[in-house]
């Protein structure tokens, strides 16, 4: 079966890959994402396990071992590339959006 390439990563996808920079398992990933984002992003159990299965099929992550029925995963090279690509995309969005901030500042100065 041909590997599906994800165009853009959704927020949960991004954080799951980010969390898998270190070897991790299901529940721990959910908690890790929650902590990293100060509770802003929470991932439902169904979403997480569906993502793990999808990423594994796509070769974005690999299963390293199984400890007490818990599957441990780690990000693979393909996943790292996708994560970095998404990071660059977000960075570009941010840089492009800076113009908005400048416009708002100029408008504020004019009003004053």
């Amino acid at each position: 079966m041909a590997r599906e390439q994800l165009q853009n990563l959704s927020e949960p996808m991004y954080y799951v890959l980010l969390s898998l920079q270190e070897e991790n398992f299901g529940y721990q990933i959910m908690e890790d994402v929650k902590n990293k984002t100060n509770g802003r992003v929470t991932i439902g159990a169904g979403t997480l396990y569906a993502l793990l299965a999808r990423f594994e099929t796509n070769g974005y992550i690999i299963q390293t071992k199984e400890v007490e029925r818990r599957k441990m995963y780690k990000i693979a090279t393909l996943g790292e590339e996708a994560l970095y690509k998404e990071f660059q995309r977000i960075k570009n969005l941010y840089n492009d959006g800076k113009q908005l901030e400048k416009n708002k500042e100029n408008q504020h100065e004019k009003n004053n």
């Binding site: 959704s10 996808m13 991932i43 439902g44 159990a45 169904g46 979403t47 569906a50 993502l51 999808r54």
Partner: peptide, 14 residues
């Protein structure tokens, strides 16, 4: 409580 599925893209895929 928090739903099991909370990512629209993943939900649609499934």
């Amino acid at each position: 409580i928090q739903p099991l599925q909370n990512d629209e893209e993943t939900e649609n895929y499934m």
